[in-house]
Computed example of a mutant assay.
Amino acid sequence: MRTSLSGSRSFVAVVSLFLANLLWAGQGIAVKMLEGGMHPIAIALLPLYLATLLLSPWIFWRRKNSWVRLRAAWQHRNQFIIAGVVGQLVAQVGMTLGIARSLASDGAILNSLVPIFSALIACVLLSERLTPLRVGALVLGLSGVVLLSPIHLSASAGAGMHHVLTGNLLIVAGCLGSAFYNVYSKRLLNDFSEIEILFFSYLAATITSIPLLVSIDSGFCKQLATFTAREWGAFSFLAIFMYGLSMLLFLYALRRVDVVVASVSFYLVPVFGAALAMAVLGERIAPQGFLGFGIVLVGMLAAFRKGYNFG
């Protein structure tokens, strides 16, 4: 019975990671849909603010011990500030500004750095092991992403190279922030639930970033008033699914697997992201990219072999 329960939880964790990566892959598409009507900083921060607001009922009104949990969060305020600012704020601002200056497929492909950054940070902060199988899975996934890389090389041939390079460097900074948040959240899972980690880290990011938003784009309210239905759809996707549901799914899985193992699943973001960029934005996929899709999936399955810290 115990083996069956453990296997069921393992399966749910894998499904959660698949769904989370599918939702993350849509970030580039949503940002591209919004960039004509809103400043990139506002695109990064306003959905985060809405997500924080939507999470608040589960913290304040749906728990009998909410004040006890609030006191516990206050005692850990420095950790939530670090997670929210160094992790989420850097991740989302870097990724959104980068995608606005580059291509949606570039953002998905450069996300392949997140598993590597996460594995290295997890070794330092959590003392997780980089076993031969885990290293092999990371390398295999990365090689699949390399096969996908011709997408952005061919698609960006007419773009300003300096502009694209700046965007890609910002995306890399966002990947580093994302990796740090993933690892740091694993530590917080010892004392807090998934939804508490999201809310309090988002709250820290919200409070610290409001002056930045007002100083750079004080007219964001007027921009919101001119949104089309398509733009509202993209904005809602970022707030509800990208900042909200996808992160809850990931933290649920992260409670049950090591960071290094969960990080291998991030190689699915280029797979899903490139497919979405092709379907929605008309960006091209080179023939070898489809081989890359298969290699990424093999690498992920290798990482989730029995015995690698599920349950």
Rank of each mutant, 00 (worst) to 15 (best):
S6A: 14
S6R: 13
G7P: 10
S8A: 14
S10I: 01
F11N: 15
F11Q: 12
A13L: 09
V14A: 12
S16D: 13
N21K: 04
L23G: 03
W24Y: 15
G28M: 04
G28E: 04
I29H: 03
V31C: 01
E35Y: 04
G37F: 06
G37P: 00
H39D: 14
A42M: 06
I43W: 01
I43V: 14
T52I: 07
L54K: 05
W58C: 08
I59F: 00
W61S: 14
K64N: 15
N65R: 13
W67S: 10
V68Y: 14
R69F: 03
L70W: 07
W74F: 15
Q75F: 13
R77H: 13
I82C: 09
A83S: 13
A83Q: 09
G84T: 00
M95K: 09
L97A: 01
I99M: 10
R101I: 00
S105D: 02
L110R: 04
N111E: 13
S112F: 04
I121P: 00
A122D: 03
V124Y: 04
V124W: 10
L125N: 05
S127V: 07
E128R: 00
R129T: 12
A137G: 07
A137R: 04
A137C: 09
L140E: 02
G144I: 07
L147Q: 03
L148F: 02
L148V: 09
S149D: 05
A155E: 11
A157Q: 14
A157G: 14
V164K: 12
G167N: 06
N168P: 03
G174H: 09
C175Q: 07
L176A: 14
L176M: 11
L176F: 14
G177T: 01
S178I: 00
A179H: 03
Y181V: 02
V183Y: 07
Y184T: 03
N190T: 13
A204N: 06
A204L: 05
A204I: 09
T208R: 06
L212Y: 13
L213S: 05
L213P: 06
V214M: 15
V214R: 13
S215H: 14
D217C: 07
F220S: 09
C221R: 12
C221Q: 14
A225G: 12
A225C: 07
A229K: 08
M242F: 11
S246E: 00
L248Y: 08
L248T: 11
A253T: 02
D258P: 08
D258A: 08
S263Q: 05
A274L: 09
L276H: 06
L276N: 05
A279S: 15
V280P: 02
G282K: 11
E283G: 03
E283T: 04
I285N: 10
Q288C: 06
L291C: 04
F293Y: 11
I295Y: 00
V296Y: 01
V298Q: 12
M300Q: 10
Y308W: 02
N309R: 10
N309Y: 08
